[in-house]
Structures are given as C-alpha cells and as structure tokens.
Simulated assay, not measured.
Amino acid sequence: MKNEIRQQMFELMKNAGSNHGKLYQQLFNSSEWQAAKIIAVTMSTNMELDTMPIIEKGLSEGKTMLIPKTFPHHKMEFFEFENLESLILSNFGILEPNDNAKVIAKNKIDLIIVPGVAFSKNNNQRIGYGGGFYDRYLSDYLGKTISLVRHFQLIDSEWKLEITDIPIQRLIIEVE
C-alpha cells in the first residue's frame, strides 16, 4: 500500500507548481519556528517543495540552519549549512555537506522540518521516500518536528504502520 501511494504522489509532485509562499509564511509564523535557534531541513529535489527559501529565511534571522548527509546502513546526520558552494552531490542526486562540514549533535537541534511524500489526515503519519533515514533519526529525537504539506499530499487512505514509523508533531498544510 505504501509503495502504491508513494508512486501516485511522485506523479502529482512532478506536476506541482513551486509557488508556496503561504506555506512558507505559515512556517515562519509558527511558534516552533519562532522559538528555534537551530533548524534542520533537507535540500529539496526538483519535485519537492523548494527548501532554499526556508534556509535563506533562517540564515537572515540569525538561525543556524542544518542539512542532512546520509551514510551506509541508513544512518543520517545533520551538518551546519554554510553555502551552496560547500555542497556535493550524493549518490541519491541530492546536495549534501562536504566532508569538512560540522556535524551538529541531535540534542542541539530545536526543530526538524521533515520531508515526506504523503501524510495522513488522521494521525500525522507520513510516507517518506522508502529509505527509513528520517524515521531512524527521529526515533530518539526529543525536539520539535514539522512537515510542510501541499494540499494533494494530505490523504484519507490508511496504510499499514510499521513499528519504526514516527508521526510528525505538527503538519502545516497548504491552503488551496
């Protein structure tokens, strides 16, 4: 079921527009964003919600912005974002920090903006990209989590939850 939902969403995501100013504004106005000093966010691909406006806004407000780097065995760490020139392309085709970047301990991160493909209207569960990187990372994370959800990504369908699936604390949903 997850794989079918994931494939359907990939098609919708490929055709989605990129004007999501209201969604960003909802994030920037949230109490979680306002209180956070250290924020982690993924580097988006061309079919995802563009995360550069989030990174730029955080930096302009003096926040420390982090981006992930993946490692073998589904391990992921967050590193301080310096600039686009300091990033390298990963095997997944995503920009990641280079080997000189500074890793930030999980307990220092105030807010993680968690990516996803689909989100449940009922229980804040998410379907990710299938690698389990975020669920593993979030399993013992004690800070705040938010996902930015485009209207078509919010679904009624139920899918079989796995013991490793971690719900998101708050979904910020795009208004149509």
Rank of each mutant, 00 (worst) to 15 (best):
L66N: 08
K106F: 07
S90N: 08
F81N: 11
E80F: 03
M65N: 08
E80P: 02
N122Y: 14
L111N: 09
E85H: 14
F92W: 05
K102C: 13
T70C: 14
Q125M: 15
N124Q: 09
T64V: 14
D99Q: 15
S90L: 04
K108L: 07
V103I: 13
L95F: 13
I113R: 03
K121H: 11
K108F: 00
N91I: 00
F79E: 03
F81M: 08
K121C: 13
P97V: 06
V114H: 05
S90V: 03
N98C: 13
P72T: 09
G128F: 10
I67M: 03
L87G: 02
L89W: 02
A101S: 13
F78V: 04
E77Q: 15
N91C: 00
L89N: 07
S90D: 00
P72S: 12
H74Q: 15
S120N: 13
A105R: 14
R126Q: 08
G93N: 06
V117D: 02
K75A: 07
F81W: 12
P115D: 06
L66C: 03
P68K: 03
N107I: 01
F71T: 09
P97A: 05
N123G: 07
K121V: 12
K108P: 00
M76E: 00
K69H: 06
E82W: 09
H73I: 02
A118T: 04
S120C: 13
I113T: 05
H73V: 10
L66I: 07
I104F: 04
N98H: 09
N98T: 01
F79K: 05
G128S: 11
T70M: 07
H74K: 13
I113H: 00
R126H: 10
D110A: 09
F119I: 07
I94C: 11
V114M: 04
K63A: 09
F78P: 05
K106W: 04
